[in-house]
């Protein structure tokens, strides 16, 4: 099963009959997928969805793929895999000039593309994680905000992005009560978590990290106020 089910891949190709096949493979493998068929749309989706990785065809209408890559990289250091039907472009693409993380020549095996996506994501996550300096330990729970990993008693736990954000915020304020408003404000930068769904997110989070979710030990409710993470170690 996918170890990173909530990763978002931006897929950019003007050949719809190829793009939708890749989309299916990636979704079946647990990725969120957003698609764009030309350069300007790709940049718009990039800004809107903050993908974890971009699969980018070089030959795009509207704006060349190489220019799309440059503009994305000027925003942030996102992993990019180029798709190309031009073998003669490959050296330039993966060389220093453009600095794509990998390339896939057309025609390709969709399975192979999914394998490359996984491998590039693993590589970039490893290089991002500065040893274990970013890790936080609260009782039996280890949170690594850089690698986006959570372990309970050393065992990895998969969380949705919202659950992760909630845990990230609570664990950086251990033994301190956060009001619902404070939590919502910090968790919901893009306005996707609403007051009435916060309790549900907390319940789902507890189900994953609490030994007994009905009687939580790590994330406790402070009635009438909000929530608090307790270091019970």
């Amino acid at each position: 099963m996918a170890q990173t089910p909530s990763r978002t891949v931006l897929l950019v190709d003007d050949e719809i009959a190829v793009m939708d096949v890749l989309e299916r493979y990636l979704r079946d493998d647990g990725f969120n997928v957003v698609c764009a068929a030309d350069g300007p749309a790709a940049l718009e989706m990039f800004a809107r969805h903050s993908p974890d990785l971009v699969l980018l065809d070089i030959n795009l209408p509207g704006l060349p793929g190489t220019e799309v890559l440059r503009r994305m990289r000027s925003e942030r250091d996102v992993p990019i895999i180029m798709l190309t039907g031009r073998i003669e472009e490959i050296d330039r693409v993966v060389g220093l000039e453009l600095g794509a993380d990998d390339y896939v020549g057309k025609p390709f095996s969709p399975r192979e593309v999914v394998a490359r996506v996984r491998s590039v994501l693993r590589r970039s996550e490893r290089s991002e994680a500065p040893a274990s300096s970013s890790e936080r330990r609260v009782g039996a729970i280890t949170i690594d905000p850089v690698a986006h990993e959570v372990r309970v008693d050393g065992k990895p736990v998969t969380l949705t992005p919202t659950q992760f954000k909630i845990l990230d915020v609570l664990s950086s304020h251990v033994n301190q009560t956060l009001t619902r408003e404070q939590l919502l404000e910090r968790v919901s930068a893009d306005g996707d978590v609403f007051d009435r769904t916060l309790d549900r997110h907390i319940a789902n989070l507890r189900a994953r990290i609490e030994p007994n979710p009905a009687s939580p030990r790590h994330i406790v409710t402070v009635f009438g106020v909000g929530y608090k993470m307790i270091d019970s170690a």
Partner: peptide, 18 residues
């Protein structure tokens, strides 16, 4: 290469049951 990519990707998806 582009047209081959369409044919290969789709037929592989049939084979894989995707």
């Amino acid at each position: 290469r582009n047209q081959l990519a369409v044919a290969v990707a789709n037929v592989e998806a049939f084979r894989d049951g995707v």
